[in-house]
Amino acid sequence: MHPINRRDFLKVASFGGLVFASGLSGCASRAAKSEADEFYFVQLSDTHWGFQGAPNPDAKVTLPKAVAAVNALDPQPDFIVFTGDLTHTTDDPAERRRRLAEFKKIISELKVKDVRLMPGEHDASLDRGEAYKEFFGETHYSFDHKGVHFIALDNVSDPAARIGEEQLAWLKADLAKQAADARIVVLTHRPLFPLFPQWDWATKDGEQAIELLMPHRNVTVFYGHIHQEHHFKTAHIEHHSAKSLIFPLPAPGSQPKRAPIAWDPAQPYRGLGFREVEAEHDEYKLTEYPVVKA
């Protein structure tokens, strides 16, 4: 496993966003593809709708502001993904449904209507995804978009953070239909690799999913859960985590406890944001955006 050198960041882009080039191993067939295959999508993560507390005194407006920021992108993305923890956990099933309903209403304001969702443990671990499915359907699925095969994996409906044998068998069958050089993007909530199990930043059987993905040369994983950007490689597979839209968390193992980074009134929304993922021939270009422009 290899960390990706942050010096690989190329430049500061417009809107204060950072650009990261996520290289795939190119091949002639892909290089020859037309610009029609180029597109971008937006990844938002860990919105934790329903959270109340000092780490984000503006929790009730952070998600609507992020929706407005995405709506201001020009051109608009082809589609939008939310990689889990749409709502903040509650032990009350009725309140969970209220939060899911409110979340659904807020994101209905997105101009782009092709929105792909998946749960986080806050949404799904206490009822094995029952309430989530009532609102948003299946928790794992795949779809194709302009030459890229997307796979959403559920590593949260099992409260023990397992993908599970049944879903792994589904993944194996799904991948069997893909060529070895197919462009594959995996969307999930928890890291598939053991980033920092001491803080529950892992998927118990994530290594099995990575093993199934290994024969495919062009695989990139986008996930959430850790409330910060993190870039890592397991062999040739890149793993990119996204910022949160509620509060940032410290770097893995950088302090004794996994506690939210305090809200700074002088710099509200610091550490929060979303990203644009631009698919270009043989690479993904990541651009990070803040919730509000500085």
Partner: peptide
């Protein structure tokens, strides 16, 4: 050696 609960058990799990 720290230990944690790694089965999501509710609002105070983390």
């Amino acid at each position: 050696f720290e230990f944690v609960c790694d089965v999501f058990c509710g609002s105070g799990h983390e």
